[in-house]
């Protein structure tokens, strides 16, 4: 399969560790992920809540540049925007015509888009990943947190079961760790309100951290830069606001995969995490 990688803006900044660990895992699995040339922002929540045409046109501009290759995405928000634009453009000739006028290209809405979790599960396969493991993460109890945008709306993303997705759990199991059942897999963290309405984020992310803690996990695994930022960078604020103590590391699933595949802590940029995973990893003898 021929892929082209769409990193998105977060992976260029606050989620640099997601970027580095995604490429590190790809390289261990001999996956070629060249970056989409001159990609632009997908428009994110700002576009779909203020300008519906722009919200379709920005993803379409990127997707039409992929020239038939499968667009691999790591950010759950970009994934959602690209898939939504595809669905609207391919499903409605009037929208397709308007978008064509804006981007100057009659894009048909059919460039395939895959999240890196889907790519690993479906194209690479869990058995190949399990075979490549050189440091099984035995004993590590993980809450796999999917958030909103991978599985919802299911008619558009077609990702997995919308209420109880398991793609990440299965990968985490394949690398020797223990995914736990917990009830907040797909609850919302407050997402894009991280800056514009922080009180929403503190409250929603507190509920997620509290459920994960109650499930007795060593860490949370995420697949979205906004989820990771809200649960990790704001964890101290949340603890202060709600008089709680969590101290729960929140890693990208690619960082856990990378550890199991033999990448170093530096290659996975583990130092970028605000809540350090070091005590947990050293207890289990898993230091990078």
């Amino acid at each position: 399969m021929n892929y082209v990688f769409f990193p998105g803006c977060s992976l260029d900044g606050t989620a640099k560790d997601f970027y580095l660990s995604t490429l590190a895992v790809a390289s261990k699995l001999d996956l070629d992920l060249p970056e989409l040339k001159d990609w632009i922002c997908c428009g994110s929540t700002a576009a779909h809540s203020s300008d519906p045409l722009l919200a379709d046109a920005l993803p379409a501009q990127n997707l039409s540049n992929a020239k038939g290759k499968t667009v691999a995405v790591a950010c759950a928000a970009c994934y959602s925007r690209l898939k939504t634009a595809n669905s609207r453009i391919s499903g409605d000739p009037a929208i397709r015509a308007k978008v064509a006028q804006v981007i100057g290209n009659n894009y048909d809405g059919h460039t395939p888009v895959m999240h890196f979790l889907e790519l690993l599960s479906r194209d690479v396969g869990r058995s190949r990943i399990a075979k490549a493991v050189c440091r099984p993460l035995s004993g590590l109890r993980v809450a796999c947190y999917y958030g909103c945008l991978l599985s919802r709306p299911p008619e558009i993303t077609g990702f997995d079961d919308a209420e109880n997705p398991t793609l990440m759990d299965q990968l985490i199991e394949a690398i020797g760790a223990t995914p736990v059942d917990w009830p907040h897999k797909t609850e919302c963290c407050g997402a894009s309100f991280s800056i514009s309405d922080t009180s929403i984020v503190l409250r929603l992310s507190n509920e997620i951290l509290s459920m994960a803690k109650a499930a007795g996990v060593d860490c949370i695994a995420t697949a979205c830069p906004l989820c990771q930022l809200n649960l990790d960078m704001r964890q101290k604020d949340i603890e202060a606001e709600y008089s709680k103590s969590y101290n729960l590391p929140v890693l990208y699933f690619t960082q856990l995969l990378g550890l199991a595949l033999g990448c170093s802590a530096a290659e996975l940029s583990l130092r970028s995490l605000m809540v350090t995973p070091e005590p947990v990893l050293s207890r289990l003898g898993l230091q990078g």
């Binding site: 803006c9 632009i40 700002a46 576009a47 203020s50 722009l54 800056i195 514009s196 309405d197």
Partner: peptide, 21 residues
């Protein structure tokens, strides 16, 4: 402050193509 945030976000895309956080 959400509409203000959205406006600034879109204007950043217009100018730079990408968001610099």
């Amino acid at each position: 402050a959400v509409p203000t945030f959205n406006d600034l976000f879109l204007s950043a895309i217009r100018k730079r193509g990408r968001i610099h956080e």
